[in-house]
Design a protein around this nucleic acid. Structure first.
Lengths: 207, 207
DNA sequence: AAATGTTGAGCGAACGCTCGTTCAATTATG
DNA sequence: CATAATTGAACGAGCGTTCGCTCAACATTT
């Protein structure tokens, strides 16, 4: 999939990057507080440290900001995952570590993850599939680990089951983010990770 | 919790109910298509079959419509569940049936469930806890079934595990609703129910 | 039973305001 | 001084909300 260019006419590359980063940083903090729709372009400009006029030098429409934000958040999550997780080893510990690490990333970036979940649908028909695809890439990381485990005989699952299981891990991770209001009352993050890992894996491990 | 009255001054009870129902029906169909924020009060009025002026005879603020819609959807889901599920029996089949039935309800009301998920956050600080509480009531239904199963020795879980497991069932049901775009490509509803039931339960059943 | 008064649901033009977007003017840069 | 970058006042479409009005239905008076 081609990286979607927002506007970027004939401006200095370095500056464009810098300004976009300011925008994304400012916008995320606003979206966390008030959501995309309640945030005005003027607020985004102010939070980014420049004027409304300058904002529109670097985007075409307000929605472009949301696209940039979602794009960034996914990259952030995926980068952290890739940096810490071994998808090739295919033993039970790798899987447990991957789950635990993923849950911790969601915890650390909980506001960002929440923003994406709640606002992604506001993206146009153009950008949405691009963003959803990034999500599938992350699910695919878990699929890959699971497949390697199956190859190594750690447990046996059909291809269908692998895919569903990967989705489950992914969603139960998000759950820690988007159901905080209920879960934090009951568990610490560590307890959550331990219990979920147990509930998820006890069913499939060979005994 | 006291049922929150929206306005309803000294109007004919029957008429108020009828008009509210028209509103809810019209609004749901619009929210499904365009979301709460993109839907105008005039559109809601038109879809309800009356004028913008009349709409405001039955609500105070646009947000009131969203509240009514969320309230209705939860009641709808819970009613269907209560009507079909036995929470007292406490054997494995009841649990499996409950899970399967819940997933089917989510499937049937997928648009409505999606609306709630995506728009609930737009509710004010007043109404949101009221709606979230309704969600917990539904989770509690699963907790109850699980507790009965534990009592009957079908499997053994700590109280912590019961609560988490109930949340998992709840969320993995919603997942069929809010991740249709990915899941429908892979599974039919029946396959989804069967596989999820298997993945969920194989880990906890006594063997 | 006709004339008159009262009620309140329904209506939609109009209001005030917000917000996304533009662009002529200004400032910084090299 | 030419070009790039920034600015914010101005614009105008669109929004939620209001409010003075209509009119059928019903009640009261004559």
């Amino acid at each position: 999939m081609k990286k979607r260019e927002v506007p970027a006419s004939v401006k200095d590359e370095r500056l464009v990057k810098k300004r976009r980063n300011q925008m994304i940083k400012g916008a995320i903090s606003l979206f966390k507080q008030k959501g995309f729709h309640q945030t005005t372009t003027r607020e985004i400009a102010r939070a980014s440290g420049f004027s409304i006029g300058t904002l529109y030098e670097y985007i075409r429409k307000k929605e472009d900001v949301l696209y940039l934000v979602c794009d960034r958040i996914y990259d952030e999550v995926r980068d952290r995952m890739e940096q810490a997780i071994d998808t090739t080893k295919g033993d039970l510990d790798s899987l447990k570590l991957a789950i635990g690490y993923y849950f911790r990333v969601v915890d650390e970036l909980q506001d960002e993850v929440l923003v994406m979940y709640q606002e992604a649908k506001a993206l146009g028909k153009e950008s949405l599939p691009y963003v959803l695809n990034k999500e599938l890439q992350m699910v695919a990381m878990f699929e890959h680990i699971l497949r390697r485990c199956v190859d190594n005989g750690v447990f046996s699952l059909t291809e269908q089951e692998i895919q569903l299981f990967a989705h489950n891990i992914f969603v139960l991770g998000q759950m820690w983010g988007f159901r905080r209001w209920a879960l934090k009352k009951m568990y610490t993050l560590d307890e959550y990770i331990e219990l979920q890992t147990k509930l998820l894996l006890d069913g499939i491990i060979k005994r």
